[in-house]
Amino acid sequence: MKFGRAVMATWLALSVSMAASAKLEDAGDVDVRFLATGPGGMEIKGEASGLKASETDGQLKIKVPVKDLQTGIGLRDSHLKKYLEVEQYPDATLEIDRSKLTFPENDQSVQSSATGDFTLHGKTKPVKFSYKANRTGSDYHVQALAKIDIRDFDIEVPCYLKVCVDPIVKLKIKFKLRET
């Protein structure tokens, strides 16, 4: 009996150790969107074409390419890319210390918030975000919401024919993380 408990304890300890060392990476189901607003209820909903996530030394890094942002109007996409200077700064990234995140048990979900270093337009600022994660086996189905002020990232407030957008932009990201 004692031997059985010892085996169980060892197995659990190993499992926890392995889980802690299992690295996270993206596993699909990517949906990256942003919402900018303008005068009179004008809404610009944009989408990014992809997302990559990886973990190195306990730091989770989420990278979204901004070169192919789509806003629903071709000319607006072109203007946006100029404001973001995408040739020079092709990605937006969020880096978070994994230890600051709460991970749910299997078939459970957690909802929490954290702060990460968000880099856009070559400028890095801490950004608070809220997130929700549902776990199914080794997969975490993640949703994250955040608000940024583009002026914090030295991005000029976009205006077109005297119609300017609000500098506060909402972000909504969905993707799947997998422990490997």
């Binding site: 949906d31 109007i73 071709g74």
Partner: peptide, 20 residues
């Protein structure tokens, strides 16, 4: 290169940007 048709978006709704 300039119209709505030139900006390829997915057909799904974005849902709320304030709630999960």
């Amino acid at each position: 290169t300039s119209s709505a048709a030139a900006s390829t978006q997915s057909s799904g709704s974005a849902g709320s940007f304030d709630e999960f």
